[in-house]
Design a protein around this nucleic acid. Structure first.
Lengths: 163, 163
DNA sequence: ATTTTATGTCAGCCATGTTGACTTATTTTT
DNA sequence: AAAAATAAGTCAACATGGCTGACATAAAAT
């Protein structure tokens, strides 16, 4: 409560601090995606395929609409990669039981294998960063990240709430 | 708040915690880039232009090689967007004084205007997240992010060191 | 019975990444 | 001085993954 603007000027809101935040996000994302991209290339897949495989793996039984709401892309864009994944046997579609218009998505065994392989690399990267930063830092990391995420998606990270 | 963590179990390294880290990175980056992308579209520019404008603004006098080392793209990819920015008067090139093969890059006034406009949006987003998370959280955020960045680029974020 | 919704499809456009081959100017090495 | 290496640029072709717009089908909701 003490800080008025000038002497106790919150250091972490200085221009340079914010710029560093911007850059850290750029560099971290650049390096976070780099390894998986290599693996994906071996399958002739791209980052878009990864995102689909990832989120379907995380939310088996999700609908196409659910996926679109997460990815923030058009259904035409999604359709391209999703179609490939279905045709090549990485993802299964089955009609919804209550609403038969829906196509519920899930990974096949083959899909789950790829998902594991891809995500494992990224999990290792994060685990290393978490471990070297320590539990308190991780708590802070989560708080800041949460603040950057669109309000309606924050629920995904709050404990115990239904999806 | 009263987390009942089993004391020895490093909660923050559990599978789910790591997955949340992955997802936070995805969602934060998605939302972090969304606003600027809209602004860029008004200029018929894309995210690649933003990155060039940003880093040149941040490092006036940098060489093309410097920029390539940051972006991790090929010179042919860079050339396309850089060429547009130069031709349209957002970026200036001048031969290096000691090594005249180099093209030292800097923003024109017009370029600096656009840079400010674009970065301001992102800075505001980060500022909001920082403010609501608090100074300690920001410290933790930085630690974790740093751990995810390729070793050779971490120097950029350490205080007082020469670039 | 009509309208809305969930999903899919075709066609074409744009941005931005890639590889490969080659040029020019300049600096460094031999 | 000649040769090699480096900084930068260029042309061409290709792939990925966004986008818009128009239209189709089946099922659910009104």
């Amino acid at each position: 409560m003490a800080d008025i603007k000038s002497p106790a000027n919150p250091l972490f809101l200085r221009e340079d601090e914010l710029r560093q935040g911007i850059e850290m996000l750029f560099f971290a994302y650049r390096d976070f995606t780099a390894k998986a991209d290599q693996t994906l290339a071996q399958f002739n897949f791209g980052r878009a395929h990864h995102r689909v495989i990832y989120f379907v793996g995380r939310n088996p039984g999700m609908t196409v609409s659910d996926l679109l709401a997460i990815l923030h892309i058009t259904k035409q864009s999604l359709s391209r990669v999703l179609g490939q994944l279905v045709r090549q046997g990485f993802i299964l579609q089955k009609p919804g039981s209550t609403d038969r218009r829906q196509r519920l998505l899930s990974l096949t065994d083959k899909g789950a294998d790829l998902e594991r392989k891809l995500t494992e690399e990224q999990r290792a990267l994060i685990a290393r960063a978490y471990r070297s930063a320590g539990a308190d830092a991780v708590e802070g990391f989560r708080k800041v990240m949460l603040g950057m995420i669109e309000e309606s998606d924050r629920r995904r990270f709050r404990p115990g709430l239904p999806r």
